[in-house]
Design a binder for these strands. Structure first.
Lengths: 170, 170
DNA sequence: GTGATTTCCTTCATTTACCGAATCATCTCG
DNA sequence: CGAGATGATTCGGTAAATGAAGGAAATCAC
């Protein structure tokens, strides 16, 4: 069926994008001397201004232990600092150091940068179209993933619209 | 500028998609008892039918050593087998075992499955639009990544690279 | 207030991923 | 038959990530 072909093509395109993004991340990591995870954490701290390990962990979906681990390295590298909160001494407040800011400024996300360059050259209508498609897609996948478990009963309106591939699955 | 806003929105959407995909992968991994990488390798072997570690490595962009490592685990888990090629005894031929097929069948790619379900419910025009956008985007990012990465050494093979889905020789 | 519970982070131990370099067997070409 | 290339493995090392357990501080119950 043509529809299925479209779906397959779309999936292929998504994977291609995923791969490109992944590699961009690794490349960037190499360029900055940090690993992707470290960079991610550093960016997240920067984005949030002043946070705690726990916040980073939930937001990036890492374990706390992992974050601690990565923070150790970032701190050792002089890119971030920990400071105990005075109001709640269980907490550690995280900050990006000057060096850290420097690094982030000099090594902006490759994906982002190249995307910007290229995307900017597209005609406006195409940008708009792509944006619309991406957001739609984000909804689709997000919904999928957010309540993956509980959602099942809610979301499925009718699966039999047009014999769309319903693999035996579960 | 409005353009910048669009770009930012697009980037956000992309990240959202990336995250969804990533988490889908992890979830799946947990469900199957394998790690994302292991699953990826297993899928790749399955997709290609009969391949060699080297092919997997280049196709997934892993090092050979990494693939060997993962194969050890897959083999230990009884999901894949290695068999020395008789025509060229340097090569190992990889196969997915019955158990491996089983696992793949029972735990199909979550991203893929949910995407199929949801995507299928969209009106045709929207599917077409999204597909077009995705492919455009794939080009953008791919191009980005190609020239960023001197894949020079692969140049000989690279005629076929574009399609990605080009099955192994045969 | 004292004690129990919860919250936040860390430490520890372990598994996996990944890479580069070195190695071994094999193939291929001259 | 070498000489060199190729395919896979082993080895050594760094990093990521998780779960379990623990310590310190806040909070709640009485």
């Amino acid at each position: 069926m043509a529809e299925d072909q479209i779906t397959n093509a779309a999936l292929r395109a998504i994977r291609r994008i995923l791969r490109a993004a992944d590699q961009g991340g690794r490349k960037l990591a190499v360029a900055t001397g940090l690993t992707p995870s470290q960079l991610l954490v550093l960016q997240e701290i920067d984005r949030r201004g002043e946070t705690t390990p726990g916040a980073i962990a939930t937001s990036l979906q890492f374990g706390q232990a992992t974050v601690t681990n990565i923070l150790d390295r970032l701190e050792a590298a002089g890119l971030a600092t920990r400071k105990r909160s005075s109001s709640d001494k269980r907490r550690m407040l995280l900050h990006v150091t000057a060096a850290g800011h420097d690094l982030l400024a000099n090594a902006p996300d490759l994906l982002q940068e190249h995307f910007r360059n290229r995307f900017g050259t597209l005609p406006a209508w195409e940008r708009a179209m792509i944006l619309a498609a991406l957001e739609r897609l984000g909804e689709l996948l997000d919904a999928t993933e957010i309540d993956a478990a509980p959602l099942i009963d809610v979301g499925i309106i009718d699966r039999a619209v047009d014999g769309d591939t319903v693999p035996d699955a579960s």
